[in-house]
Design a protein around this nucleic acid. Structure first.
Lengths: 336, 336
DNA sequence: TTGTATGCGTTATCAA
DNA sequence: TTGATAACGCATACAA
């Protein structure tokens, strides 16, 4: 049933090599016979068999994107960016995500098992040594997204979150006159949280504001848990005129809703800011002051880097740093 | 560099057929030699070449998921469900999405070009005849998501939205006493919109409430446009105690925010309901009354159907209907 | 400019 | 229970 290169050759009355040439290096083949072959290809609806071709070329034109989770706007934007760019460059994208039970190694193997992918973009948010050693073993071109796995000489795309976070803290401190900032982050082991926490400490130091360890919370990036935390804490926070820095927009939204439910006005009585600048940021009331993270660019850049390496394997490892940017909207207030 | 089945054979001092047998039909091979082969495989870190194997088996264990867009919670949940199930069943998932400029055919060809996928799940929201004829040509196992392409005898997964939408309209009419419902849908050509509009008409007929054509709007499923529409219309709607049915949660959120911005209370002065039950539904204030659509089930069911067909190509075409369900929360009010 | 022949790494058939 | 060998569909070095 499937039509092969041989069928085309027969129909066009040429050899299979000629057909192959028409398909690949069009130039060296005679204008007339080329036409004939092309017609045959068209009429037969011939499509080269990817397996056979892959066997020769050792290329599939498939890229893999491995994400820690598929939940939420953040990841879907990365997928979107990656997918778009991949198509532009003539690649297909395979998606994989870590299931709860997985550890880093499972994921990688899940993808590398399919030796067919030409390259893999992996987002690593939790950096443990297991993942690190696993990664070192991979021979397929690899791009690390988000976090930076030291000692592994792969390409990577990272966000300069320290700078974005610092801009946010400074805005809160110097423009809004905040004297106390509550930090609501993700897990302690989460790379993003670590980075933002670092920015938190340095900026507060710089402003000579002490940080109470009671003002640092580690949640899970979800609306619901943030809402629950907010329900308990929001009164006290408001009383001391604190500002709340949530490490993503969802948690910010959760805290805002908790505050409103308790009759505390945001931003008048409590400033709450987010991170990422997902669409949620414009859907809350007040709209979120947040830090814009170029999510879809992360995806497309990862694909770019991957393709560049495929074109030139000798290329020295590149670390691409994307900027994050403070976006001031309403939730941080402007007059207290 | 890549270790082949021959290397393993040499190391284990057997023929390649024995190695192959160990890999596939373990039973017919002697316990001792099997052990030897397995050790060799392990030590060499051998992984069968997917291309060569695919060439023989005509199977890649890759499924494709083609979506009209990658924006938003709705699609990402479908991807999530599909991805999870695919992994459970030992498949990898390839994602493709329609870019704005694409028509239906481009998408399909983009995937089918890679003759390597074992099956394709396509979500079709806009049904035009072009897509229809294109689909008919595809010989790869196909599952149609969401809409129902008549005359094409493929498997499909659809949502019983009429029933969910009808439940919503009835709730509005009989429980909430609404006398006027404003319908805010997507494009006129959009399958979901068509279905829900049908439910709208029949339920209103059933209740003997006339529908003014001025009360039917066709937007684009986005927050922003809904917000803009709301900003213009919301006063008038509230004045006549209308209820607003938005065809997805995002638009409902947009309208609610527009209302609130104009000092109109939801649901006290205006009831607004959504559709889909994405996470947004719980993040608005008031929380959205909406219709739950089993998004991740759509994804996983599509994968299921695909795999079932792969196992049994003769199987008669199956149409799987997933139920939608009214979820009453706060935005529809309960006392007017 | 075109055709012939070889090999890519598997699985499957058939003999041993 | 094992091994030799023929496909699978394609790209390519080499010959014509």
């Amino acid at each position: 049933m499937p039509v092969s290169i041989e069928d085309v050759a027969k129909k066009a009355d040429v050899s299979i090599s000629t057909v192959s040439r028409v398909l690949n290096r069009r130039n060296i083949v005679n204008e007339k016979t080329r036409k004939r072959v092309e017609i045959a290809i068209d009429e037969l609806g011939y499509r080269p068999n990817v397996f056979a071709r892959g066997l020769m070329l050792r290329r599939s034109n498939i890229l893999a994107l491995v994400l820690p989770d598929l939940h939420g706007e953040f990841y879907s934007e990365i997928i979107r960016g990656a997918n778009l760019r991949a198509r532009e460059l003539g690649y297909q994208l395979m998606i994989s995500s870590v299931v709860a039970s997985d550890d880093g190694s499972t994921v990688l193997s899940a993808v590398t098992d399919h030796s067919l992918v030409d390259g893999i973009a992996v987002m690593i948010s939790e950096v443990d040594s297991q993942t690190r050693t696993d990664l070192a073993k991979v021979k397929t071109p690899l791009v690390i997204l988000d976090s930076d796995v030291e000692g592994v000489k792969h390409d990577s795309v990272v966000i300069d979150q320290r700078q974005g976070a610092a801009a946010m803290f400074r805005h809160l401190i110097y423009n809004q006159g905040t004297k106390r900032i509550v930090f609501v982050g993700g897990l302690v082991t989460n790379f993003d949280t670590i980075e933002r926490l670092a920015a938190f400490h340095s900026t507060m130091d710089e402003a000579n504001i002490p940080i109470s360890s009671n003002d640092i919370f580690h949640l899970d990036y979800n609306y619901q848990t943030a809402f629950e935390l907010g329900s308990k804490q929001v009164r006290e926070w408001a009383r001391s005129r604190a500002s709340v820095f949530a490490a993503n927009d969802e948690m910010a939204a959760g805290i805002i809703d908790a505050a409103i439910e308790l009759g505390i006005s945001v931003p008048d009585q409590l400033a709450v800011v987010g991170f990422d600048d997902t669409r949620i940021a414009q859907m809350t009331r007040p709209r979120l002051t947040t830090v814009h993270v170029p999510m879809s660019s992360m995806g497309s850049s990862a694909v770019d880097l991957l393709c560049q390496r495929l074109d030139d394997p000798q290329r020295p490892p590149t670390k691409l740093t994307l900027q994050s940017e403070l976006v001031v909207r309403e939730s941080c207030g402007s007059d207290f």
